Computed example of a mutant assay.
Amino acid sequence: MNKLIYCATVLIAFIASCNTQKQASKFRFATPEAGTLVKIGESIPLKLVFPSEVSTFDSVVYAMDGEVLARRTDSTPVTLDTEKAAFGSRTLSAKLYYGGEEQVAYSNIIVVPPPPKRYSFKIINEYPHDPKAYTQGLEFDENNILYESTGNESSGQNGKSSLRKVDYRTGEVIQRLDLDDRYFGEGLTLVGDKVVQLTWREKVGFVYNKNTFAKIGEFAYGQSAEGWGLCYDGNRLIKSDGSSRLYFLNKDTYAEEGFIEVYNDKGPVDSINELEYIDGKVYANIYTKDIIVIIDPETGAIEGEINLIGIYADKKDHNNELNGIAYDRRGDRLFITGKLWSKLYHIELVER
């Protein structure tokens, strides 16, 4: 072997050996590895690798998200019970105290809910829907008038973003307000005698008189990046922005007052789009997929998943997605449609 190559090889091996020894002597978590998925309710061991130069120590304090879990004066593992943990990324820390000094080790776990219930669907009835309506929001009022918000994806007059009242039985547009061309209409919901409508990237929402469509207010977004879906739970507005978050808005001031992360059993779920509030749960389209998820708005857990693949035979491309959920509370009926769909479907869920 060439002497120069041999020396370089020995040097590399020596450096690697030193790095390995350094890593072995570092105070760190052996388990769990950072980013480990943990099902809610599972118990996992917290095991540490102690520095080789520390033969004795005063104590180790284990914590999750800053809350103390246990104190130990030896190196025995601690068992973490996740029964009451919040979903999402949870930061783990261990503080080692010895000889008046302190070292800290960090890791994290991602707590996820159980697998969601799976549903397919049964079509009960279908109704005409404007095939030029780029549907972004959909909701029934107490008189079964359908309110619809559209974006401006298609061309011509029908391409303008709009707010509409629709006779769902015939598809006839009873009343329509076109938005200024600079705005892309998104989700909407009803709050008493008001309609609240989002715009996409303009970071502004509009408030209208429900009967006349006269604009009576507007509001700026807070931390949420964009406007996607919107629903109302009777106390607060719930807003999506295409991420894995649901934001809670004050129903009177429209200020953002908090958010939750949405998770299924595989981790965070993003691309949350059009929303509907039904019997304490948030039903949400997942953008580009013919899937609706059922979310617990208190925990962020996805409790159900509705597979609607194949419901609309004329679906063509990415501008033709499922994107409209409306619930008739009086009749306990669930309706869905999509962007540029010619049909509005009344469906029932079939548990698998």
Rank of each mutant, 00 (worst) to 15 (best):
K95G: 07
I40K: 14
Q21R: 04
V10W: 05
V60K: 08
E101A: 15
L37A: 10
T76D: 09
Y98C: 09
R118H: 10
F14I: 08
I15Y: 03
P113V: 04
A16D: 04
F57I: 02
N19R: 07
V38P: 06
T82W: 00
A63F: 12
I12Y: 02
K84W: 00
I44N: 05
S75N: 14
S25L: 01
V60L: 11
L92E: 06
F87A: 01
V112K: 13
L11E: 05
I109G: 08
G100Q: 14
D58R: 11
S107Y: 13
S120I: 01
G41D: 04
Q21V: 06
Y106W: 15
F121M: 03
R28S: 04
L48T: 02
N2R: 10
Q103G: 11
I109R: 09
S120W: 00
L11S: 07
Y119L: 04
E42N: 12
Q21D: 00
K84I: 00
R118T: 10
G66N: 10
A94V: 10
A85F: 06
P77S: 07
S120N: 05
Y62F: 15
D81T: 02
D65K: 12
P32I: 08
P45H: 09
S59L: 05
E126G: 02
L11K: 03
P51Q: 09
A86Y: 03
K26G: 00
K39D: 09
G100Y: 10
S25C: 02
R118D: 07
K95F: 11
I15C: 08
G41E: 05
K3M: 14
T31K: 03
L11D: 04
K122S: 04
G41I: 10
V60G: 08
V112C: 12
K22S: 01
V104M: 14
Q21G: 08
L37T: 13
E101S: 15
I110F: 13
K39V: 13
P116D: 07
A16I: 01
I12N: 01
T91L: 12
T82A: 00
S93T: 12
A34F: 12
Y127Q: 04
F87Q: 01
N2A: 10
V10P: 06
R90I: 02
N108Y: 15
M64L: 14
I109H: 08
D65N: 14
V54M: 05
S75V: 13
K47W: 03
M64F: 13
K3N: 15
T56H: 11
R71H: 14
L4H: 14
V78W: 06
V78Q: 10
E101H: 15
I44Q: 07
L80K: 04
I44Y: 10
V104I: 15
Q21S: 02
L92K: 07
S75R: 14
F27N: 04
E67P: 13
Y119Q: 07
V111M: 03
N2I: 04
A86I: 01
V68Q: 15
T82N: 03
G66T: 07
P115A: 08
A16E: 06
Q103S: 14
S75C: 12
F50Y: 13
S120F: 00
F29V: 01
V38G: 07
G66C: 11
S75P: 07
E33G: 13
I123Q: 02
S59H: 02
F29R: 04
Q23N: 03
K39F: 07
L48I: 11
T36Y: 09
E102W: 11
Y119K: 06
A70R: 14
Y97P: 08
L80S: 06
L11R: 02
E126D: 09
Y127L: 04
Y119S: 04
P45D: 13
V49G: 03
E42F: 05
